[in-house]
Computed example of a mutant assay.
Amino acid sequence: MRLHEYQAKGLFADAGIPTPDSRLATSVDEVVDAGRDMGYPVAVKAQVHVGGRGKAGGIEIATDEDELREAAESIIGMDLKGYHVDRVLVESAVDFTNELYLGVTLDRGEGEPVVMVSSEGGVDIEEVAAETPEAIAREGVDPAYGLHPFQARKAVYEAGVPGDVARAVSSVLETLYDLWENNDASEAEINPLMVTSEGDVVAADAVMNVDDDALFRHPDLAEMEEESYTDDLERKAGEYGFDYVRLSGNVGIIGNGAGLVMTTLDLVDYYGGEPANFLDIGGGAKAERVANALDMVFSDPNVDSVVFNIFGGITRGDEVARGINDALAQFDEIPKPVVVRLAGTNAEEGMEILNTELVQVERTLEEAVQRAVANAEEGNL
Protein backbone atom coordinates (compact mmCIF):
# COMPACT_ATOMS: atom_id res chain seq x y z
CA MET A 1 0.00 0.00 0.00
CA ARG A 2 1.38 3.36 -1.05
CA LEU A 3 0.60 6.22 1.30
CA HIS A 4 -0.14 9.70 0.06
CA GLU A 5 2.29 12.43 1.04
CA TYR A 6 -0.08 13.86 3.62
CA GLN A 7 -0.57 10.42 5.20
CA ALA A 8 3.16 9.70 5.36
CA LYS A 9 3.88 13.15 6.76
CA GLY A 10 1.39 12.53 9.54
CA LEU A 11 3.30 9.40 10.53
CA PHE A 12 6.63 11.21 10.27
CA ALA A 13 5.45 14.14 12.37
CA ASP A 14 4.05 11.83 15.06
CA ALA A 15 7.45 10.13 15.23
CA GLY A 16 9.23 13.44 15.76
CA ILE A 17 10.50 14.25 12.27
CA PRO A 18 10.05 18.00 11.63
CA THR A 19 7.49 18.72 8.89
CA PRO A 20 6.01 21.99 7.62
CA ASP A 21 2.64 23.25 8.81
CA SER A 22 0.12 21.83 6.33
CA ARG A 23 -3.56 21.20 5.67
CA LEU A 24 -5.40 18.86 3.28
CA ALA A 25 -7.93 20.53 0.98
CA THR A 26 -10.41 19.29 -1.61
CA SER A 27 -11.75 22.59 -2.95
CA VAL A 28 -10.43 25.97 -4.02
CA ASP A 29 -12.13 27.70 -1.08
CA GLU A 30 -10.53 25.28 1.39
CA VAL A 31 -7.13 26.02 -0.16
CA VAL A 32 -7.65 29.77 0.19
CA ASP A 33 -8.82 29.42 3.79
CA ALA A 34 -5.72 27.38 4.59
CA GLY A 35 -3.46 30.04 3.08
CA ARG A 36 -5.11 32.75 5.15
CA ASP A 37 -4.60 30.74 8.33
CA MET A 38 -0.99 29.75 7.65
CA GLY A 39 0.29 32.92 6.00
CA TYR A 40 2.34 33.26 2.83
CA PRO A 41 4.20 31.91 0.97
CA VAL A 42 2.57 28.48 0.74
CA ALA A 43 2.91 25.49 -1.56
CA VAL A 44 -0.03 23.74 -3.19
CA LYS A 45 0.82 20.08 -3.85
CA ALA A 46 -1.27 17.54 -5.78
CA GLN A 47 -1.82 14.34 -3.79
CA VAL A 48 -1.33 11.64 -6.41
CA HIS A 49 1.01 8.67 -6.60
CA VAL A 50 3.41 9.93 -9.25
CA GLY A 51 6.90 11.34 -9.24
CA GLY A 52 7.91 14.59 -10.84
CA ARG A 53 4.78 16.43 -9.73
CA GLY A 54 6.53 19.79 -9.83
CA LYS A 55 7.71 19.39 -13.42
CA ALA A 56 4.20 18.30 -14.45
CA GLY A 57 2.50 21.31 -12.88
CA GLY A 58 1.29 19.53 -9.77
CA ILE A 59 3.13 21.78 -7.31
CA GLU A 60 2.87 25.57 -7.22
CA ILE A 61 4.15 28.23 -4.83
CA ALA A 62 1.83 31.14 -3.99
CA THR A 63 2.90 34.39 -2.35
CA ASP A 64 -0.56 35.95 -1.98
CA GLU A 65 -4.24 35.02 -2.12
CA ASP A 66 -4.66 35.72 -5.83
CA GLU A 67 -1.76 33.44 -6.72
CA LEU A 68 -3.06 30.81 -4.31
CA ARG A 69 -6.54 30.79 -5.83
CA GLU A 70 -5.07 30.57 -9.32
CA ALA A 71 -2.82 27.67 -8.27
CA ALA A 72 -5.72 25.82 -6.63
CA GLU A 73 -7.94 26.26 -9.68
CA SER A 74 -5.13 24.96 -11.89
CA ILE A 75 -4.24 21.87 -9.83
CA ILE A 76 -7.55 20.63 -8.40
CA GLY A 77 -9.27 18.62 -11.10
CA MET A 78 -6.24 18.40 -13.37
CA ASP A 79 -5.07 15.20 -15.04
CA LEU A 80 -1.56 14.56 -13.77
CA LYS A 81 0.17 11.78 -15.70
CA GLY A 82 -3.10 9.89 -15.97
CA TYR A 83 -4.29 10.57 -12.41
CA HIS A 84 -7.21 12.82 -11.53
CA VAL A 85 -6.28 15.29 -8.76
CA ASP A 86 -9.10 15.60 -6.24
CA ARG A 87 -7.12 16.76 -3.21
CA VAL A 88 -4.10 18.92 -2.49
CA LEU A 89 -1.82 19.58 0.44
CA VAL A 90 -1.49 23.26 1.33
CA GLU A 91 1.83 23.68 3.09
CA SER A 92 3.93 26.48 4.51
CA ALA A 93 6.86 27.08 2.18
CA VAL A 94 10.32 26.40 3.60
CA ASP A 95 13.11 28.95 3.19
CA PHE A 96 15.98 26.55 2.60
CA THR A 97 19.68 26.69 1.83
CA ASN A 98 20.26 23.03 1.01
CA GLU A 99 18.32 19.91 0.01
CA LEU A 100 19.19 16.37 1.05
CA TYR A 101 17.84 12.89 0.35
CA LEU A 102 17.22 10.19 2.96
CA GLY A 103 15.85 6.73 2.19
CA VAL A 104 15.37 3.25 3.60
CA THR A 105 14.57 0.16 1.57
CA LEU A 106 15.49 -3.50 1.23
CA ASP A 107 18.66 -4.41 -0.61
CA ARG A 108 17.50 -7.68 -2.15
CA GLY A 109 20.97 -8.44 -3.50
CA GLU A 110 22.49 -8.33 -0.04
CA GLY A 111 19.37 -9.64 1.70
CA GLU A 112 19.27 -6.82 4.25
CA PRO A 113 17.85 -3.33 4.78
CA VAL A 114 19.88 -0.40 3.50
CA VAL A 115 19.80 3.29 4.44
CA MET A 116 20.79 5.89 1.88
CA VAL A 117 21.83 9.53 2.18
CA SER A 118 22.65 12.00 -0.57
CA SER A 119 23.55 15.67 -0.57
CA GLU A 120 21.78 15.94 -3.94
CA GLY A 121 18.20 16.00 -2.75
CA GLY A 122 15.26 17.61 -4.51
CA VAL A 123 15.66 15.63 -7.74
CA ASP A 124 14.78 12.08 -8.75
CA ILE A 125 17.10 9.77 -6.85
CA GLU A 126 17.12 7.49 -9.91
CA GLU A 127 18.80 10.28 -11.87
CA VAL A 128 21.42 10.70 -9.16
CA ALA A 129 22.03 6.94 -9.04
CA ALA A 130 22.48 6.78 -12.82
CA GLU A 131 24.56 9.92 -13.32
CA THR A 132 26.50 10.38 -10.06
CA PRO A 133 26.20 7.16 -8.01
CA GLU A 134 29.08 8.26 -5.82
CA ALA A 135 26.81 11.01 -4.46
CA ILE A 136 24.72 8.40 -2.62
CA ALA A 137 26.09 6.98 0.63
CA ARG A 138 24.75 3.53 1.50
CA GLU A 139 24.89 1.63 4.77
CA GLY A 140 23.66 -1.95 5.18
CA VAL A 141 21.75 -2.75 8.36
CA ASP A 142 21.57 -6.03 10.26
CA PRO A 143 17.81 -6.40 10.89
CA ALA A 144 18.50 -8.28 14.12
CA TYR A 145 20.04 -5.15 15.67
CA GLY A 146 18.58 -2.29 13.67
CA LEU A 147 20.34 0.89 12.61
CA HIS A 148 23.08 1.81 15.08
CA PRO A 149 23.66 5.54 15.69
CA PHE A 150 27.25 5.24 14.48
CA GLN A 151 25.97 3.80 11.16
CA ALA A 152 23.63 6.74 10.69
CA ARG A 153 26.47 9.17 11.40
CA LYS A 154 28.76 7.28 9.00
CA ALA A 155 26.25 7.46 6.13
CA VAL A 156 25.64 11.16 6.76
CA TYR A 157 29.38 11.88 6.87
CA GLU A 158 30.09 9.91 3.68
CA ALA A 159 27.32 11.80 1.88
CA GLY A 160 29.11 15.08 2.58
CA VAL A 161 26.38 16.59 4.75
CA PRO A 162 27.69 19.80 6.40
CA GLY A 163 28.90 19.30 9.95
CA ASP A 164 26.59 21.88 11.50
CA VAL A 165 23.49 19.85 10.55
CA ALA A 166 25.00 16.35 10.54
CA ARG A 167 23.70 15.50 14.03
CA ALA A 168 20.13 16.56 13.15
CA VAL A 169 20.21 14.66 9.86
CA SER A 170 21.53 11.53 11.59
CA SER A 171 18.69 11.73 14.09
CA VAL A 172 16.10 11.99 11.30
CA LEU A 173 17.69 9.00 9.53
CA GLU A 174 17.46 6.88 12.68
CA THR A 175 13.80 7.80 13.11
CA LEU A 176 13.09 7.09 9.43
CA TYR A 177 14.59 3.62 9.80
CA ASP A 178 12.48 2.96 12.90
CA LEU A 179 9.36 3.99 10.98
CA TRP A 180 10.32 1.72 8.09
CA GLU A 181 10.89 -1.24 10.39
CA ASN A 182 7.97 -0.75 12.78
CA ASN A 183 5.42 -0.27 9.98
CA ASP A 184 6.57 -3.19 7.78
CA ALA A 185 7.36 -0.73 5.02
CA SER A 186 9.04 -1.59 1.74
CA GLU A 187 10.29 1.98 1.20
CA ALA A 188 10.51 5.14 3.25
CA GLU A 189 11.96 8.34 1.81
CA ILE A 190 12.36 12.04 2.43
CA ASN A 191 13.20 13.96 -0.71
CA PRO A 192 13.99 16.63 -0.03
CA LEU A 193 14.99 17.03 3.59
CA MET A 194 15.46 20.79 3.57
CA VAL A 195 18.10 22.60 5.58
CA THR A 196 17.05 26.11 6.63
CA SER A 197 19.25 29.17 7.08
CA GLU A 198 18.88 28.67 10.86
CA GLY A 199 20.37 25.18 10.60
CA ASP A 200 17.09 23.32 11.10
CA VAL A 201 16.02 20.35 8.99
CA VAL A 202 12.47 19.92 7.66
CA ALA A 203 10.94 17.01 5.73
CA ALA A 204 9.44 18.81 2.73
CA ASP A 205 8.24 15.54 1.23
CA ALA A 206 7.43 12.09 2.59
CA VAL A 207 7.11 8.69 0.96
CA MET A 208 6.15 5.40 2.60
CA ASN A 209 5.03 2.17 0.97
CA VAL A 210 3.74 -0.58 3.26
CA ASP A 211 3.67 -4.31 2.64
CA ASP A 212 0.03 -5.23 1.95
CA ASP A 213 0.47 -8.62 3.60
CA ALA A 214 1.44 -6.92 6.88
CA LEU A 215 -1.56 -4.62 7.16
CA PHE A 216 -3.30 -7.00 9.56
CA ARG A 217 -0.64 -6.00 12.08
CA HIS A 218 -1.29 -2.29 11.53
CA PRO A 219 -5.01 -1.48 11.80
CA ASP A 220 -4.21 2.24 11.85
CA LEU A 221 -2.53 1.95 8.46
CA ALA A 222 -5.23 -0.36 7.13
CA GLU A 223 -7.75 2.42 7.78
CA MET A 224 -5.74 4.63 5.42
CA GLU A 225 -5.88 2.10 2.59
CA GLU A 226 -9.14 3.29 1.04
CA GLU A 227 -7.98 6.91 1.16
CA SER A 228 -4.65 5.94 -0.39
CA TYR A 229 -6.34 4.99 -3.67
CA THR A 230 -6.02 7.77 -6.21
CA ASP A 231 -8.72 6.67 -8.63
CA ASP A 232 -11.38 4.08 -9.35
CA LEU A 233 -8.94 1.77 -11.13
CA GLU A 234 -6.73 1.42 -8.06
CA ARG A 235 -9.85 0.91 -5.95
CA LYS A 236 -11.01 -1.83 -8.29
CA ALA A 237 -7.61 -3.49 -8.13
CA GLY A 238 -7.88 -3.61 -4.35
CA GLU A 239 -11.35 -5.15 -4.57
CA TYR A 240 -10.26 -7.74 -7.13
CA GLY A 241 -7.05 -8.60 -5.29
CA PHE A 242 -4.74 -7.64 -8.17
CA ASP A 243 -1.26 -6.19 -7.98
CA TYR A 244 -1.79 -3.08 -10.10
CA VAL A 245 0.13 0.08 -10.87
CA ARG A 246 -1.23 2.64 -13.28
CA LEU A 247 1.29 4.14 -15.70
CA SER A 248 1.09 6.87 -18.31
CA GLY A 249 1.18 4.90 -21.58
CA ASN A 250 -1.47 3.35 -23.83
CA VAL A 251 -0.55 -0.37 -24.00
CA GLY A 252 -2.48 -2.31 -21.38
CA ILE A 253 -0.57 -5.25 -19.90
CA ILE A 254 -1.98 -8.33 -18.15
CA GLY A 255 0.10 -11.26 -16.91
CA ASN A 256 0.08 -14.01 -14.32
CA GLY A 257 3.26 -13.33 -12.41
CA ALA A 258 5.23 -10.23 -11.48
CA GLY A 259 8.27 -11.33 -13.48
CA LEU A 260 6.22 -11.94 -16.61
CA VAL A 261 4.54 -8.56 -16.30
CA MET A 262 7.82 -6.72 -15.72
CA THR A 263 9.37 -8.43 -18.75
CA THR A 264 6.38 -7.39 -20.84
CA LEU A 265 6.69 -3.77 -19.64
CA ASP A 266 10.34 -3.76 -20.65
CA LEU A 267 9.58 -5.17 -24.09
CA VAL A 268 6.77 -2.67 -24.73
CA ASP A 269 9.25 0.09 -24.01
CA TYR A 270 11.95 -1.63 -26.11
CA TYR A 271 9.68 -1.81 -29.15
CA GLY A 272 8.73 1.85 -28.93
CA GLY A 273 5.48 1.65 -26.99
CA GLU A 274 4.45 3.02 -23.61
CA PRO A 275 2.99 0.72 -20.92
CA ALA A 276 -0.34 1.82 -19.47
CA ASN A 277 -0.16 -0.34 -16.37
CA PHE A 278 1.36 -3.17 -14.39
CA LEU A 279 -1.36 -5.78 -13.76
CA ASP A 280 -0.55 -9.15 -12.21
CA ILE A 281 -3.64 -11.34 -11.90
CA GLY A 282 -1.69 -13.97 -9.95
CA GLY A 283 -2.12 -17.71 -10.09
CA GLY A 284 -4.99 -19.12 -12.12
CA ALA A 285 -6.74 -17.44 -15.00
CA LYS A 286 -10.37 -18.45 -14.71
CA ALA A 287 -13.03 -16.54 -16.63
CA GLU A 288 -14.15 -14.31 -13.77
CA ARG A 289 -10.61 -13.25 -12.89
CA VAL A 290 -9.70 -12.58 -16.51
CA ALA A 291 -12.94 -10.63 -17.00
CA ASN A 292 -12.14 -8.49 -13.96
CA ALA A 293 -8.67 -7.78 -15.33
CA LEU A 294 -10.08 -6.82 -18.72
CA ASP A 295 -12.72 -4.64 -17.05
CA MET A 296 -9.94 -2.71 -15.32
CA VAL A 297 -7.78 -2.30 -18.41
CA PHE A 298 -10.69 -1.45 -20.70
CA SER A 299 -11.84 1.15 -18.14
CA ASP A 300 -8.59 3.09 -18.53
CA PRO A 301 -9.28 5.76 -21.19
CA ASN A 302 -5.57 5.90 -22.02
CA VAL A 303 -5.46 2.26 -23.19
CA ASP A 304 -5.53 1.71 -26.97
CA SER A 305 -4.51 -1.97 -27.00
CA VAL A 306 -4.02 -4.90 -24.61
CA VAL A 307 -1.47 -7.69 -24.44
CA PHE A 308 -1.85 -10.87 -22.37
CA ASN A 309 1.38 -12.61 -21.36
CA ILE A 310 0.32 -15.88 -19.76
CA PHE A 311 2.48 -18.80 -18.65
CA GLY A 312 0.73 -22.08 -17.93
CA GLY A 313 2.35 -23.66 -14.90
CA ILE A 314 0.14 -25.42 -12.41
CA THR A 315 -2.73 -23.84 -14.32
CA ARG A 316 -2.71 -25.45 -17.78
CA GLY A 317 -2.66 -23.44 -20.98
CA ASP A 318 -5.93 -24.92 -22.22
CA GLU A 319 -7.66 -23.83 -18.99
CA VAL A 320 -6.23 -20.35 -19.41
CA ALA A 321 -7.45 -20.18 -23.00
CA ARG A 322 -10.97 -21.20 -22.00
CA GLY A 323 -10.90 -18.56 -19.29
CA ILE A 324 -9.91 -15.87 -21.79
CA ASN A 325 -12.58 -17.01 -24.28
CA ASP A 326 -15.29 -17.04 -21.61
CA ALA A 327 -14.20 -13.66 -20.27
CA LEU A 328 -14.21 -11.96 -23.68
CA ALA A 329 -17.54 -13.55 -24.56
CA GLN A 330 -19.08 -11.56 -21.71
CA PHE A 331 -18.43 -8.31 -23.58
CA ASP A 332 -20.97 -7.24 -26.21
CA GLU A 333 -18.12 -5.57 -28.09
CA ILE A 334 -14.38 -5.83 -27.53
CA PRO A 335 -13.48 -2.15 -27.05
CA LYS A 336 -9.74 -2.54 -27.64
CA PRO A 337 -7.73 -5.08 -29.66
CA VAL A 338 -6.38 -7.88 -27.45
CA VAL A 339 -3.22 -9.87 -28.21
CA VAL A 340 -2.53 -13.16 -26.39
CA ARG A 341 0.69 -15.08 -25.95
CA LEU A 342 0.58 -18.45 -24.20
CA ALA A 343 3.52 -20.56 -23.02
CA GLY A 344 4.11 -23.44 -20.64
CA THR A 345 1.96 -26.46 -19.82
CA ASN A 346 -0.52 -27.32 -22.62
CA ALA A 347 0.30 -24.07 -24.41
CA GLU A 348 -0.23 -25.60 -27.88
CA GLU A 349 -3.65 -26.87 -26.91
CA GLY A 350 -4.48 -23.45 -25.50
CA MET A 351 -3.42 -21.67 -28.69
CA GLU A 352 -5.79 -23.88 -30.68
CA ILE A 353 -8.66 -23.20 -28.26
CA LEU A 354 -8.36 -19.40 -28.28
CA ASN A 355 -11.15 -17.71 -30.23
CA THR A 356 -9.34 -15.77 -32.92
CA GLU A 357 -12.49 -13.78 -33.65
CA LEU A 358 -12.05 -12.18 -30.22
CA VAL A 359 -8.27 -12.09 -29.82
CA GLN A 360 -5.13 -11.89 -31.88
CA VAL A 361 -2.76 -14.79 -31.14
CA GLU A 362 1.03 -14.69 -31.34
CA ARG A 363 3.41 -17.54 -30.58
CA THR A 364 6.27 -15.54 -29.07
CA LEU A 365 6.25 -12.76 -26.53
CA GLU A 366 8.26 -10.50 -28.81
CA GLU A 367 5.72 -10.88 -31.61
CA ALA A 368 2.81 -10.32 -29.22
CA VAL A 369 4.32 -7.13 -27.83
CA GLN A 370 5.19 -5.76 -31.26
CA ARG A 371 1.64 -6.36 -32.44
CA ALA A 372 0.17 -4.73 -29.33
CA VAL A 373 2.42 -1.69 -29.83
CA ALA A 374 1.34 -1.48 -33.47
CA ASN A 375 -2.33 -1.74 -32.42
CA ALA A 376 -1.82 1.11 -29.97
CA GLU A 377 -0.21 3.27 -32.64
CA GLU A 378 -3.17 2.64 -34.96
CA GLY A 379 -5.56 3.53 -32.14
CA ASN A 380 -3.85 6.90 -31.79
CA LEU A 381 -4.25 7.80 -35.46
Rank of each mutant, 00 (worst) to 15 (best):
A8M: 03
G10I: 04
L11W: 14
G16F: 03
P18N: 11
T19R: 01
P20Y: 01
L24E: 08
L24R: 10
V28S: 01
V31G: 07
M38I: 13
G39I: 09
A43R: 06
A46F: 05
A46E: 03
A46H: 02
H49M: 02
G54I: 00
K55N: 00
E60H: 14
A62Q: 06
T63W: 04
A71C: 01
A71Q: 02
S74I: 01
G77V: 09
V85F: 04
R87N: 11
R87A: 13
V90I: 15
S92F: 00
A93P: 00
V94W: 00
L102C: 13
G103P: 11
G103I: 11
L106M: 15
E110F: 12
E110S: 13
S118Q: 10
S118E: 09
E120W: 00
V123R: 10
V123A: 10
I125F: 08
I125N: 07
A130Q: 14
E134L: 05
I136A: 07
E139Y: 11
V141N: 01
A159S: 11
V161W: 06
V161G: 02
D164Q: 13
A168I: 07
W180L: 08
E181A: 15
D184M: 01
E187D: 05
A188H: 06
E189T: 14
M194G: 03
V195Y: 07
V195N: 07
T196D: 04
S197Y: 10
G199A: 07
D200A: 15
D200P: 09
V201E: 06
A204I: 03
A204E: 02
D205F: 12
A206S: 11
V207L: 15
M208Y: 12
M208F: 12
N209S: 15
D211K: 02
D220V: 01
M224A: 04
E226A: 15
E227H: 11
Y229I: 04
T230Q: 05
T230L: 01
V251I: 10
I254D: 04
G259M: 09
T264R: 01
D269G: 02
G273P: 14
A285G: 12
N292F: 06
L294N: 06
L294S: 10
F298N: 11
V303Y: 02
S305D: 05
V306G: 12
F311C: 01
G312N: 04
D318S: 13
V320Y: 03
A321L: 06
K336M: 10
K336L: 07
K336Y: 05
P337M: 03
V338I: 13
V339M: 01
A343D: 15
E349M: 15
M351A: 14
E352P: 08
L354N: 08
T356M: 04
E367D: 15
A368L: 14
R371Y: 02
V373G: 08
V373T: 12
A376E: 01
G379D: 04
G379V: 09
N380C: 00
L381Q: 03
